[in-house]
Design a binder for these strands. Structure first.
Lengths: 243, 243
DNA sequence: CTTAGGCACTTGACCTATCAAGCGGGCTTT
DNA sequence: AAAGCCCGCTTGATAGGTCAAGTGCCTAAG
């Protein structure tokens, strides 16, 4: 006897209908079988069918119109081309997974933008952990993590060794906070001499700079990352629906 | 007698619970009243209560845990700080709403990146409509619209006059296509002399360049926009959940 | 003091049922 | 030919109900 659990009936129906859509049984633009037809075919109740259809609508596979029926849209394109957001990888991946060296660690006076993003007074002291990441042996980007001092206490962030947990996991395990979302600002500027040297880049190539403000559900900034990306080696990607 | 329609009961419950959460009646972290308690208080059925609670969970206001209860998260922060995505405004707003002058209109050989983004062969002819937008009387950005030739036929895009419809509305009204989502690429580079002159910017300030590939639900590129943004005057913003 | 079982609570899943409202086609009337 | 009405279909909303599964607390036994 198989130990694997049987998914709920509504979930099985979702999968069946998705397979039929992708197989061309219900091509985009066509009318899906009505609720009554699905009830007959699958021998399940109307609320169960409706739950499955609601899920398909919410995921973008179908549209419904009262009095008319439910129309097939097809597999939502975004789910096939979904991109990791730039901040996401730095928040969740352990430092051990990306080769690099620690450049700076410790309490520093916050640059103005960082203080604003953290919701702190100008010239506040904050904790900084800055690393130079490499890709295929070449310098790739500089990542700085800025934290309010209280949030950095009791963590391993002062270590020169790479963290074996993602930043989020590391902090959530030690502090009573929960990361919820990221607000990003993307700017471009010319590198300083020191940055150009560190990144092994020409002085006349700009930097893409991502400021990622990591926030809890209430919108409070728990940490800020900034990432310096030589523009000749990096581009950012994003995808979103048109509303 | 008021002619306004009464929203469904589940929607009224959603609003009531949202108001109570924001008023502090149910602070974040606290347990929401159980289904039974809500059924008693509001005198409505369990499926109606459950529909309201499911909606709150999907919008991020609450979390549920079987056997335990439903916990308050609070107003989802992203809905309070939602930003228009850069491509969105160009897709939906009429050109008449943003002052500018038409710089180039007509069939041109597609630059390589544009051909790739449109899914065309290298050196294909495409339609280009390029405008210099102003903000408070100053040059602000250059927006180029690139379309396959067949999609531009029968449109007003060849006009030197600004469109009174958004691009999306204009094309969807004339062609059998439906814009669904955008894939964006963000890069930084130095401006050419001509671009710097047109934008009234110094030569040593970089450009943020957004390539927005406007796609249908099947992922086919219908149009590409590129937007040149002097980096000393522009930054891009984004927000996303941490998964 | 620890462990296990039972109970009461919770949400998850599924069922049967009714009525409201929208849509489209066919038929009748003007 | 056009307009209106009716009917049969569709989905939207609501109700009442049962059983499964998860959680936490309390009590009893070891």
């Amino acid at each position: 006897m198989s130990l694997e659990s049987v998914p709920p009936k509504y979930a099985q129906l979702v999968q069946t209908l998705q397979r039929r859509i992708e197989a061309g049984t219900y091509p985009p633009g066509s009318l899906l079988p009505s609720e009554n037809q699905l009830i007959q075919e699958f021998g399940i109740s109307r609320p169960t069918v409706v739950a499955a259809l609601r899920m398909l609508r919410e995921q973008g596979w179908i549209d419904s119109q009262q009095g008319k029926g439910r129309f097939v849209r097809g597999r939502p394109a975004m789910s096939t081309v979904e991109q990791p957001r730039s901040g996401q990888a730095y928040v969740s991946s352990p430092e051990t997974s990306s080769p690099g060296e620690v450049l700076d660690v410790g309490a520093v006076t916050a640059p103005n933008r960082i203080a604003v993003l953290l919701g702190l007074k100008p010239k506040s002291k904050v904790f900084l952990r800055r690393r130079l990441l490499s890709h295929e042996g070449e310098p790739s980007e500089i990542v700085s993590i800025w934290l309010p001092l209280d949030l950095s206490e009791g963590t391993d962030l002062t270590s020169a060794e790479p963290l074996s947990q993602g930043l989020r996991e590391h902090i959530e395990a030690r502090k009573s906070v929960h990361f919820d979302h990221v607000l990003e600002q993307i700017v471009a500027r010319m590198p300083t001499s020191a940055e150009a040297t560190r990144l092994g880049m020409p002085k006349n190539v700009p930097l893409l700079v991502v400021f990622a403000s990591l926030r809890d559900a209430a919108g409070r900034a728990l940490a800020v990352l900034d990432v310096l990306l030589p523009a000749d080696r990096h581009e950012l990607e994003d995808a979103y629906p048109i509303s």
